[in-house]
Design a binder for these strands. Structure first.
Lengths: 180, 180
DNA sequence: CTGGCCATGTAATGCGTTACATGATTAG
DNA sequence: CTAATCATGTAACGCATTACATGGCCAG
């Protein structure tokens, strides 16, 4: 399991509330790890029970209390243990490819449409990542050095989105040509 | 859910037993969809209850009976419906990138080792896919045309493994240079 | 006055993994 | 003798998704 560990990674970077964490799962690390707010709140509870994080409540008027979570010493140890362990390769369950694989049972037009739709989504993702890259490149050398590792993950995102789009071009050409 | 639909796709191609299907999840479509035999047997039961597949039992001496599954008319309709529906983009939960993102809490050497290990796995995958590509390219034009769509999914595998390896090269260089 | 953001959750259901179980045959 | 392949499953647990619930504040 690594949802817990991804939470530890984010909390080690900066103490946060559940809500703030769920934002990060959409932005900073969204392209390589997804988690809903429901999952996050549940796991934060378990992490607390494990003794790997603690929280301070900050009461707010009107709104419910904020809980600011932070990593404990034993949580930090656990994080280091995990970082030094063997990581399982990501499991890819890609329904779009299942569709293409079995695509002969529908018209090419149907496949094309769906691929075009996904292409739109991937283009949007790529733009987002490029924007983050722009921010990174505008930092000072010292700051760039600090964020070197997160930047490497960003590069993975850029590379994978670009490769996807290139492949999609090929597919679209192939399916359009070979009109059935 | 698409495990059921990926089963329908495979069964529409060819009637098979649960065991044969689990082999295909390791070979033919293994890089974009994974499923354990336990899951497969469970889903086959449900697919039968749904009326989307049926099976014929073939008794064998010594071994337990084989159940050869095939898609029913209503299963075929369901497949076509699914193929024409909106497919959710794949969800990426990639623990290796989480590790890299939070990698400053361990030594570079530890990160490098794990990335090298994954590089080995990806190289192996790439070779497998290239072997399948070799087979495809040795087919007659007519046969190539028949397997055009599965071939497009294979190309996705090739493209994505190559992009991964290229990225890994960059990462390894970066982490080796910036020795801490 | 509508929708989005802030902020936190519970409950039910569905999907996936791990462990366990059985038993024959074949290759090294 | 050991491990792999063929062949099928059950049970327990863990992880993820969907639906539901609450409620204030702010911008258009």
């Amino acid at each position: 399991m690594s949802l817990k560990h991804s939470l530890l990674v984010l909390l080690a970077e900066q103490s946060s509330t559940g809500y703030e964490l769920s934002q990060k799962y959409k932005e900073a690390i969204g392209f390589f790890w997804k988690a809903s707010h429901q999952q996050i709140y549940k796991q934060l509870k378990e992490l607390t029970a494990d003794g790997w994080v603690t929280f301070e409540e900050q009461s707010q008027q009107g709104k419910p209390d904020k809980k600011k979570y932070q990593v404990t010493d034993s949580g930090f140890q656990e994080l280091q243990r995990w970082l030094s362990s063997e990581i399982k390769p990501a499991k890819a369950n890609d329904a779009l490819l299942v569709m293409l694989y079995g695509g002969k049972h529908v018209e090419h037009q149907v496949l094309l449409q769906e691929i075009e739709r996904h292409k739109g989504l991937h283009e949007k993702n790529l733009k987002k990542l490029e924007a983050i890259q722009g921010l990174y490149l505008s930092l000072s050398k010292a700051q760039q050095k600090e964020y070197r590792l997160p930047y490497l993950t960003l590069k993975r995102g850029l590379s994978s989105e670009k490769a996807w789009l290139q492949w999609a071009e090929e597919v679209i050409e192939e399916l359009s040509d070979a009109a059935q």
